[in-house]
Design a protein around this nucleic acid. Structure first.
Lengths: 133, 133
DNA sequence: ATAATCCCCATCAGTTTAGTAGGATAATCC
DNA sequence: GGATTATCCTACTAAACTGATGGGGATTAT
């Protein structure tokens, strides 16, 4: 029940980029230093964010990354999903947890976790990078 | 952001035991069959639950497990914590996420995740095994 | 040219997870 | 008291995941 460092770093990087959006391209190294993220690890993450169309980039001197879409169009949920997969808090392992076992299934237990999942999902879906800058 | 199978199996087992609480001791094998859990794996889990005082047991013929306390005194949170550790949805990996980096920390981001953590925590804390039986 | 910077994949060590194995110990039944 | 049934408890393992690190190649600005 926690974020991976990939998701966390991605969010921090996006926040950082959103904040310096007016300054043009920001290099990976700048972000790495600002947010204390290992550079080579951050590169992977930024590249993934670019592939997923959240960033655009420019090579060479004065190159770097910048947001490819407005910060208020990037939901936290999307970012987390990109790195951590589904964010349902109970993507169940046992296939009988959600599915019906012949005789009985634990409907009420499932209901509790569905409620949590929905809350988490909605919260992260409606909160954008712009909201946290 | 999901439960481990250990937590899930533990909850299923507890629900099963709560349901058959009047029938005396229920063997691990019975639970394993009812909830489709690998027997030897379940044994470990039941043993852990016993060590943590949620169950009592009896060996030998007609032995098995039963609840050691009323089902309405066992919160889902306790069980999950026992197997998965802290259930905060953002027990942050990077030490600078919650802590202040000298210049800036992402207070708003932290606020969002604290909100989620609190909701999850409260929900699981107030829901008991009795509630889901 | 050359220096800066992104691009992209391969590898790795450590941890966690899910599950298996096997034998010791204790209670019950005959 | 011996057979049976069950829990108790430790050790092990294969696979996946996590958090990186490393090395080069491609591209662009000066």
């Amino acid at each position: 029940m926690k974020l991976t460092s990939r998701s966390e770093y991605a969010l921090l990087a996006l926040v950082c980029l959103a904040r310096h959006n007016a300054d043009g391209y920001v290099s990976a190294e700048t972000i790495a230093l600002a947010q204390k993220i290992p550079l080579k690890f951050l590169e992977q993450i930024l590249f993934a964010l670019k592939r997923a169309k959240y960033l655009r980039s420019s090579k060479g001197q004065h190159g770097g990354y910048r947001l490819a879409k407005p910060a208020d169009k990037i939901a936290l949920a999307e970012v987390i999903r990109l790195f951590d997969g589904a964010l349902a808090p109970t993507e169940s392992v046992s296939k009988y947890f959600y599915e019906s076992t012949p005789i009985e299934k634990e409907k009420n237990l499932v209901k509790v976790f569905k409620g949590i999942r929905d809350y988490v999902s909605e919260t992260l879906e409606k909160t954008t990078i712009a909201d946290v800058v």
